[in-house]
Each structure stands twice: as C-alpha cells, then as structure tokens.
C-alpha cells in the first residue's frame, strides 16, 4: 500500500514535468523564432532600407531597400481588410440577428466559414489565377486585393460572429420589444455592442492579409516600384523575403532579413493591440 502510493505520486510528478517541458518547448520555439528574426534583421535595418526601393533589380542589384514591399503590403492588406469587412460584417449580423437560431442555415454557414478558414492559401491563389484568366485581369494589386480579401473573409466573419454571439440575448429582446426592426436591432444595438470586438476582428484579418505569401504569388506579382495605381503589380513583404533570401548577393539577402523583421514587428504589434482592444472592450460594453 505504502509503495503504491509513492509510485502514484512519482507518476504524478513525472507527468507534471513532462507536460511542463512540452509547454516549455512550445514557448521556446516562439522565442527562438523571434530571436532569430531580430538578430538577423537588426543589423540590416536602417532608415535607407525602409525608405528606398531596390536599386538595380530585386534579385541581383545592390543598394536600396524594401519600400516597394512595405508600401505594396500595406495597400494590399488595407484593401483586402476593407473588402473582407464589407462581406464579413453582414454575415455576422445575419448569423446573429436575422437567421433563426434553431434553423439549419446558421450551422451550415458557420461550417462553411470554418472549412474555408482551413482551405490552404495556395488553393486560394490557384483559384484566383483561374478567376483572373476568366475575367481577363492581369497580375495586379486589384487582383491581389480580391483574392486575399476572400481569403480573409472567413477569419473576419467568424471572429465577428463570436463577438456578436457574446452580446446578451436580453439586448436583442429589449430592442425587439421596443418595436425596433431586425435591421435597427442589428445595426444600432448588436453591432454597436460588439464594436471593440469588431476592431479585433479587423486587426486579425489585417495580420493574416499582410503575412500571406502563397495567394499573392499568383495574383499580385512582384515589382521593384511602389505601385502607382490599383491595376499595377505590387511587391509584398512575404514575397520580398522569399525571393530575396535565395539571392547570391549578400546585400540582397540583408533586404530579406530586414523585411522579415518589419513583417514580424507588424504582426506582433497587431497581436498585442488586438488583445488590448479586447481588454478595453470588456470595460465599456454593458
């Protein structure tokens, strides 16, 4: 009896340490990634790097920076986030106000969103390519915004859906009881209550849009210049990293590391900002 108790306690300790080390590995990998990017990118980061376009070609030329990619990525992410919000917010409102909660449609649409969220971005890219052939647009910022926008819709819609779901049902009941139409309830009560959460959804969408490489490869192309119009091709940070990292010229590789640091910083800031927004939101919602 004595011995078996000791065994069980030993087992308990062993299991605890196993779980702790597993969690540690997960943490350590994040630290390792960020450290690698910061160490490699810090020395190549300079004012010139951020504010000039690549000189003499992005693959072989020396000098210049990554302004083309920063500008292209910001345009692309802004455009596609706006598009995704335009599509995602109505979906979230439909799921939470208009559709009957016991009906089948809610489940079907939520499942469709979840599945779309799991569709690899390279498939979106291929689909975008097929779409572009059909419609007859060339590789451009516009094509990129459409395809990346579609890629981001499931994230934005599903996050907004979760936010609006947490709005208390009494709020809706109260609005309906006062004679408000469904649209007035959706727009003036439910959406308003979820506003800070909707902000978080936007940030998440923006983060996914700015970091995705496989879908923009087919649709946005790559260029050394800052895009002048929406029909021009545009460079993006992920592709700037991907293309320039394999260059034989060390100066060009520096640009890849700098772009990686910039991209990581943007993502981390978005993530932290989104979290703060969630915290603040809980203070102001009723």
């Amino acid at each position: 009896m004595e011995k078996s108790t000791r065994n069980r306690l030993l087992q308990e300790q062993a299991a605890l340490w196993m779980m702790r080390s597993a969690a540690f590995v997960v943490f350590a990998s994040l630290v390792a990634i960020i450290l690698t990017i910061v160490v490699k990118g810090w020395s190549s980061l300079s004012w010139e790097m951020l504010t000039s376009t690549p000189q003499g070609g992005y693959y072989l030329g020396k000098g210049g920076g990554i302004l083309n990619a920063i500008a292209g990525s910001v345009y692309l992410a802004l455009g596609s986030t706006v598009l995704a919000t335009g599509i995602g917010l109505p979906i979230a409102l439909y799921l939470n106000v208009y559709a009957s909660p016991s009906g089948r449609s809610v489940g079907m649409i939520r499942t469709a969103l979840d599945v779309l969220f799991g569709v690899p971005s390279i498939v979106y890219g291929s689909f975008g390519f097929v779409l572009m052939l059909w419609v007859g647009i060339k590789v451009s910022l516009f094509a990129g915004i459409i395809v990346v926008g579609l890629l981001v819709v499931p994230i934005v819609a599903r996050t907004m859906d979760e936010v609006l779901r947490s709005v208390r049902p009494e709020m809706k009941d109260a609005a309906f009881a006062m004679g408000a139409t469904r649209w007035e309830t959706a727009w003036k009560v439910v959406a308003r209550q979820g506003l800070p959460g909707l902000g978080t959804a936007l940030l998440m969408g923006f983060g996914r849009a700015i970091g995705d490489a496989a879908s923009v490869m087919f649709t946005t192309g790559f260029t050394d210049h800052v895009p002048g119009s929406i029909m021009d091709p545009a460079a993006t940070l992920p592709l700037a990293i991907f293309f320039q990292l394999s260059s034989p010229v060390p100066e060009v590789r520096e640009r890849a590391y700098a772009a990686a640091l910039v991209l990581t910083m943007i993502i981390l800031i978005l993530s932290i900002f989104g979290r703060l927004l969630v915290k603040r939101s809980s203070k102001h919602t009723i």
Binding site: L30, I33, R208, I210, I241, A260, I267
Partner: peptide, 13 residues
C-alpha cells in the same frame, strides 16, 4: 502570436 506569425517567417527561421 505563434499562430499569427506568417508562414514565410517560419521559413526563414
């Protein structure tokens, strides 16, 4: 954060 890091950053790592 780990989930939000873009694929290309994992690649460079």
């Amino acid at each position: 954060m780990l989930g939000a890091i873009p694929s290309v950053i994992f690649g460079i790592w």
